[in-house]
Design a protein around this nucleic acid. Structure first.
Lengths: 212, 212
DNA sequence: TAGATTGTTAATCGATTAACAATC
DNA sequence: TAGATTGTTAATCGATTAACAATC
C-alpha cells in the first residue's frame, strides 16, 4: 500500500497515532481534523497530513478524518492482525514482565513458545504455557516456524542464539539485550535499550531540569 | 560543559557510545580513531567527531581517542555519578522487572522507595526494600525529596499521580505508562512505550522482511 | 453555494556527511 | 619531520513546516 519505502520517523509515529485514535474512539469522537489532532498530540497538522498521505488519502476535504476508520486503517498498515508466530527467550524477571505486560495478539503477534536455560524456571507455566528448555529451541523452530523472537537474555546468550534463530527462519527480533545485530539482509531488529533510555533521562535531569 | 543546547539525536547517541566504549575497555583496547569506532558502531566517523565536539575536544590529532578517558567523560556528561534520588511506583510484573533488571546507581540514579496500591504487594521486599503503601507517597516525598519517579502503573493512575509528584518536587519521569505528559516547564519525561516499539516491529515484519 | 479541510507542492529548517586545514 | 587523525567549516541530504489549490 505505501507508495514507496516510508521513512522511519513516519513509521515510528504510526503506533502513536493508533494509540491516540483509540483514546478518541473510547470518548465516542466520530470525526477529527488534522488541526484538532495536532493539538492533542503535539505534532503539527501539516505533519499529520503528510504522514497519513504516505499510505493514501484517509480524509475528506472539508470534513477531516473519521476516527475509527483511520484507526482501523493504521492498524492494518502496522499489521495488527498478522498474528506473526513469536517465541520469547529468557523467562527471568524481564521476560516474565514482557510476557504478562504486552498484549501480543493485540499488536500483531502470537506467542507460541517461551524458553529458558534455568532449570528452576523450566516447566513453570507463564502466559498459559510451560517454559521450555532452551535445548528444545531449534527443534521447536523447525517444527513451528516462528518468524519473530523476543530476546530477554544477556548479550552473550543473544550472540550465540541469534544466528541459530536466523538459520531457522526467524525474520524479526525484539531485542532487549545489549547484543548488537548490525545490519543483516532481510532481518529486522527492534532494539529496546532500557538502560540507554534511563541515561538519556539522567542527561536531561542534570542539564535541563529545574531553574537553568 | 556543552557549548550550547545539544540536539536530542546527539544526546540519544551518548549512551550508545558509552556502552560501546565499555566493551572496548573490557577488551583492553587503549585507543581508537573515529573511523574505527564508526565501523564498529555503524555511524559515520564524521558524525562521531561532530557529536563528541558538542562537548569539547576529547581526542588528539594523529592519535584518536583514549577509550577509557572518553568513556569516563561521556559518563560525566550523562551524569552517571549524580545519584539522583528516585522512587518507583507500581511493583507489578513490569515494576519488579525494572527494579531488578536496571542497575540504577550505575546509570546515575539512587532508588530510595518503591510504592504500590496492592495490599498483596505492599510490604514485600523488592530490591532490598519493602514495597510501601501508595498512601505514604506524598509524605515520603516531602521527607525524602526524590527528583525522579519511575512510573510502572496504568495510565489512569499516572494521570492522577503525576501532578502530585510534580507538586512535591519531582523533576523527571521515566514513564512506562500510556499517560501523555505533554510539555511541562522544567519537567523532563522519558517515555518507554513498549507496545509502540513492538508495533514498529510488526510494520517491519509485514513490509520489509523476507524477499520483498 | 460557501466554508472547511484535505492532499500535495514548495520553502524552510535541522541533521548528517564531506572536506580540509590545524596539529599532535 | 611525515603520517595520521582530529576539530571545524561547508555542502548535502532529508524531514518538517508552510502554503494553497483541489474538493467535499
Amino acid at each position: 500500500m505505501p507508495k514507496f519505502s516510508v521513512s522511519s520517523p513516519v513509521i515510528k509515529r504510526l503506533p502513536r497515532y493508533y494509540r491516540f485514535l483509540g483514546k478518541l474512539e473510547r470518548q465516542n469522537i466520530i470525526r477529527i481534523s488534522s488541526r484538532e489532532l495536532s493539538q492533542k498530540m503535539g505534532f503539527t497538522a501539516s505533519q499529520i497530513r503528510q504522514d497519513l498521505n504516505c499510505f493514501g488519502g484517509f480524509g475528506q476535504q472539508g470534513y477531516g478524518y473519521n476516527v475509527s476508520v483511520l484507526r482501523k486503517s493504521i492498524g492494518e498498515i502496522l499489521g495488527i492482525n498478522a498474528g506473526n508466530k513469536t517465541i520469547l527467550i529468557g523467562a527471568g524477571n524481564l521476560g516474565k514482565a514482557v510476557t504478562t505486560h504486552i498484549d501480543f495478539p493485540e499488536r500483531g503477534f502470537k506467542l507460541i513458545g517461551i524458553f529458558d536455560n534455568n532449570s528452576k524456571t523450566i516447566g513453570r507455566i507463564t502466559a498459559g504455557m510451560p517454559v521450555r528448555n532452551i535445548d528444545e529451541l531449534e527443534p521447536f523452530c523447525r517444527k513451528n516456524q516462528p518468524v519473530c523472537a523476543v530476546l530477554c537474555i544477556p548479550e552473550t546468550a543473544a550472540k550465540e542464539l541469534a544466528p541459530k534463530l536466523i538459520n531457522n527462519g526467524v525474520k524479526a527480533f525484539w531485542n532487549f539485550s545489549h547484543y548488537d545485530f548490525g545490519k543483516i539482509e532481510n532481518i529486522i531488529v527492534e532494539n529496546v535499550h532500557l538502560a540507554d533510555s534511563l541515561m538519556t533521562l539522567a542527561y536531561g535531569l542534570n542539564n535541563y531540569s529545574g531553574d537553568e
